[in-house]
Design a protein around this nucleic acid. Structure first.
Lengths: 188, 188
DNA sequence: TCCTTATTTCGGAATATTCTGAAACATCGT
DNA sequence: ACGATGTTTCAGAATATTCCGAAATAAGGA
């Protein structure tokens, strides 16, 4: 795959971004490459283009699949697996959110539940400390539950909901601080 | 600060969690400690309780402040700074979300905008590749804008909105898969 | 089966992050 | 000003992560 200067810079930037997001550089770059390429690429070509070890690509592809961000495809007359990026960004974002919930929120809830159950036999801990732990547990559980509910909405409904949110926000803002000149009606 | 077994395990778990969330262990543990303690603690006591270097506490406290998760307070007759955790979890979550947007989303938008402007003078890049980059840029910008709008809502409104979301989700779910005991009247 | 090609695993090198302890710095009271 | 107390900075040690390349494994076709 021949990269144009902008494609290259896009990929590099994504590598940066990825680190902030908890992916590692290679993983992020591979996604970026597949995303701009817009066409399925085999692993060795990815390795060649990004100049990383073939094995590194293998591992990273695994991770991307676990995030649900790329998919395997096959080309006729080619035994190699090819990979495509999910290009619908709503879908991709949802996949990332799902994965993060699963990895970050759910285990936390579980851990906190464990603490709470242990707390019953811990006579050195204060009542209020337990209460605080409980409220953190409940908070996470509520947020998680809400997410699950909303997560299953078809995209159209979701968009409607988001627009509603934004609209409410704008009305609210106007009501609360009518000092802004409010020249533009749009955001930003 | 004397830690009970459960408090200790809570803190340890939080340290774990923190790493998944992009904080480092010490930072996460300090927040956890202040959170369960529920009372302001001076830096050296934090260091003593968690058995980490005093300087490490100093750095971590800085970071926690930059996330807006703890605040300085003072006790009469004590020159030392004391720190308390934000215990309202709505607020804390909002602070984290703000910080993440600022660190993760905003720079990404900027980088993508840069790519797009460069793309005009890059004749080796395909139209469709540019289009894909643009759609990613627009997606992030839209999401960021939405977030900003909603972010400013008072908590009560936000909660209403979330409840609405969940309710819509439940109705929607019933309409779409009428196999639940409810005799589905709607089909799609 | 055996040869060829594609993929994965894995030990350790390269790199990046986190943490420590000492020293520098700041602030207050006297 | 000086000492006492508290805080921050910083270089390098400790640790963790990422990456490479060789070797093992799988899978297809003759």
């Amino acid at each position: 795959m021949q990269l144009s200067p902008v494609m290259e810079s896009f990929i590099l930037h994504w590598g940066e971004m990825g680190s902030r997001w908890g992916l590692n550089r290679t993983v992020a770059q591979i996604y970026a490459l597949l995303y701009v390429a817009g066409t399925p690429l085999p692993a060795d070509e990815i390795a060649g283009t990004l100049k990383v070890a073939r094995s590194n690509v293998s591992t990273s592809i695994r991770e991307l699949q676990s995030w649900g961000l790329i998919a395997r495809t096959h080309a006729i007359g080619d035994r190699r697996d090819h990979f495509v990026a999910e290009t619908d960004l709503w879908t991709a974002a949802a996949r990332v959110a799902d994965a993060r919930k699963r990895r970050e929120i759910d285990p936390a809830i579980e851990a906190l539940a464990g603490c709470l159950s242990d707390a019953r036999t811990d006579d050195a801990i204060g009542k209020d400390a337990v209460a605080r732990i409980r409220s953190m547990h409940d908070f996470l559980e509520a947020a998680g539950g809400w997410y699950e509910d909303v997560r299953e909405l078809p995209q159209s409904k979701l968009e409607t909901l988001m627009k509603m949110g934004a609209k409410v926000a704008r009305l609210e803002a106007r009501a609360r601080k009518p000092k802004k000149k409010k020249k533009g009606k749009g955001r930003r």
